[in-house]
Design a protein around this nucleic acid. Structure first.
Lengths: 283, 283
DNA sequence: TATTGTGAAGAGATTCACAGCC
DNA sequence: GGCTGTGAATCTCTTCACAATA
């Protein structure tokens, strides 16, 4: 402890943990809000609360960036905003294209928080010729035929895919071939991309399914069952805070659906984890 | 190895790791696709490829659910679809409300994959009186005043918030007070909720910022810099697969923005991680 | 022979707790 | 006295590698 500088591989190498990177935008948002209220400094405790994490984690995260705080005082808000922005690459301007201007694509194009933080919608692209030229969010939709030209002329390296699932893979290949190296994928499909290309995905139905899992567990707990059966990571069951009384029993779901119906090449079926079958039974 | 049953805390307790839960929907989607093509069985290797993970992880994940495979053969597709659905609680019907019917809310309401897997949009709610009664996705929008009534009458336990950031906290409190215990939050704000309520968030701008971070790093690597400087978790830099050539140099971003401008209670400023200041310099 | 299921090792992330500094 | 920065401990997740087995 405190014997200078030991961790961090060796020479330079930034090596910020991925988990930390994923939280930096959260801190940045909280800090921006403080900055707008002209708050000059903030402690790790306060900032952590605003960002919805605990203070030890926040301090550890910041320690990967450098020593930007003042002991006994806290962090200078403006300075930290700048440092995090720089670390995230937001001091640059990132032109972005959105491919697939349906409901979702249009919503994304209209989303304000987009432009605010270093990102700029350079073009909207759709495969439907009927869409071409129509203005969405004050910008004419362009046809997929010109995708490569648009990417190259605008120096786009980040693409957003909001097409139907069936088109996503092909769109990603064209984007990548034209020079895009980061993709934000809203289509409910797994993209296969070459090494060196980053893909992040946003999937409504996956998120809902994860919630349903936890919801089901909660329902099970009400009905007896050893209170000792939590998922490892505790989901996202948030810290206290506001809260208007925690509400009643949690509202039970409605009907059951789709029983097993052992069709197909039925071979398997062995042991479930243990005896306790919840809610719906297997067969 | 095969010496019976050692891990898992003790008595019953399901204890599926959160990371596993988060992947189950992915497996389910891949399996559903196989099922539609009437593929009877699948190996961990094939399924893993389709889901975009490696096979060891997949097998480990499935091992938490039970022994549903057949050595030398693979997994029965139909059976596994059912088991995962059950584990996720998708054999039930989950009524969901969407609050905030702007661009995004409307897009969500229209999103098909919603209804398909156990979820049903029970109501669309918006604070704008002008919206009330207007049909969106074939369903009349209802006014926020009736929120509590709607939640209770429909037994809703999952709420989706697609309001502006400013309204989200208050909406979440009303949802929770009315009985909702799981929230999917699209508003760019951290919700403070009481213990026992699960929140998952989807945030476009956070995802873009994470991509920008990796993008910036890639750009830096081109310009010399010890090739040994990866982020711990390797982001989402996907496995190989298709890929149309990995494209050119990756397109450099355009102008720089917003220098430090040391205003406010300027105190801090010490050491950055190490000497190498990239792109934009601090002061 | 092909493929699962899983201990054990390894890597990462979180939390603790306290020394160091303002 | 208050708060940061960080080693060390702990916990969780991933990967390895191979015995068990259809």
């Amino acid at each position: 402890m405190a014997t200078g500088r030991t961790h961090r591989p060796a020479t330079r190498s930034r090596g910020i943990p991925e988990a930390t990177v994923a939280r930096l935008p959260l801190y940045l948002r909280a800090l921006t809000a403080l900055s707008e209220r002209s708050v000059p400094t903030v402690s790790s405790e306060e900032l952590a609360a605003a960002a919805g994490v605990n203070s030890a984690k926040l301090r550890k995260d910041f320690s990967y960036l450098g020593s930007y705080g003042t002991r006994g005082v806290g962090y200078d808000v403006e300075y930290l905003v700048y440092q995090i922005s720089r670390e995230l690459g937001l001091t640059q301007d990132w032109p972005v294209v959105i491919v697939g201007i349906g409901n979702l694509g249009a919503a994304l194009a209209n989303y304000g928080g987009f432009a605010s933080r270093g990102f700029r919608v350079a073009a909207l692209i759709d495969a439907d010729p009927a869409m071409a030229g129509k203005p969405v969010a004050g910008m004419p939709v362009q046809h997929t035929d010109d995708l490569e030209k648009i990417i190259e002329e605008n120096g786009v390296s980040i693409g957003v895919i909001a097409t139907p699932a069936g088109a996503a893979q092909q769109v990603s290949e064209r984007l990548i071939a034209a020079g895009v190296t980061s993709i934000l994928n809203f289509a409910p499909t797994v993209l296969q991309v070459p090494e060196g290309v980053d893909v992040r995905k946003v999937d409504l139905s996956i998120e809902l399914q994860i919630l349903a899992f936890h919801e089901q567990r909660k329902a099970g707990e009400e009905t007896g069952a050893a209170a000792e059966a939590p998922v490892s990571g505790a989901g996202a069951s948030a810290a206290a805070g506001a809260g208007t009384g925690a509400g009643g029993t949690g509202a039970a779901p409605a009907a059951a659906v789709e029983p097993p119906a052992g069709r197909g090449a039925a071979t398997a079926r062995k042991n479930g984890p243990e005896g306790d079958v919840p809610a719906v039974m297997p067969a």
